[in-house]
């Protein structure tokens, strides 16, 4: 499989692997029978400085992924791209954004970046649901 340097780097040394205890939101997407599954954990907080001051941002984000090298690299990449972003901006991250940051993905692996984007969206949705329940 011809992967970019960046994909191989994140596949072998993924960032933000693991779970967050008492996560504010958890997104679970994919299915092991399809060969890939991803869990994304997020911690949400208010920004204290900068242009987003007072807005809700992703303070911490971690993932666990079962899947191929592309699935692991895209998972790692989205956690890095999303960290510190407002929920609105994080939600806008698309599969093309991720693939681009990774220096491209083989065409057959593009669905992996979809999984990562969906996983993050699912985690944010989960956070909003939890929040609404608390109110």
């Amino acid at each position: 499989m011809q992967y970019s340097k960046k994909v191989m780097e994140l596949f072998t040394k993924p960032k933000n692997v693991g779970e967050i205890k008492n996560a504010d939101g958890i997104g679970e997407v994919g299915n092991p029978s399809c060969g890939d599954m991803m869990s994304i954990y997020i911690k949400v907080g208010k920004a204290t400085t900068g242009k987003n001051k007072g807005k809700e941002i992703l303070k911490d984000i971690k993932f666990k992924t079962y899947g191929c090298a592309a699935a692991i690299a895209t998972s790692s990449m989205i956690t890095e791209m999303a960290k510190g972003k407002t929920l609105e901006d994080a939600e806008k991250l698309s599969r093309n954004d991720i693939a681009e940051e990774l220096g491209g993905l083989p065409p057959i692996k593009m669905h992996c970046s979809n999984l990562a984007a969906d996983g993050l969206k699912a985690a944010i949705e989960n956070y909003r649901k939890n929040k609404a329940k608390k109110k």
């Binding site: 072998t12 399809c34 890939d36």
Partner: peptide
């Protein structure tokens, strides 16, 4: 169990070992 073939294969490949997998991802 619990791991996907292509990722194992790629790691082995980095260690210089060539094999194949029944995984769809490859």
């Amino acid at each position: 169990d619990y791991v996907e073939g292509e990722s194992m294969l790629m790691h082995l490949n980095l260690k210089g070992i060539a094999c194949s997998t029944g995984s769809a991802c490859s």
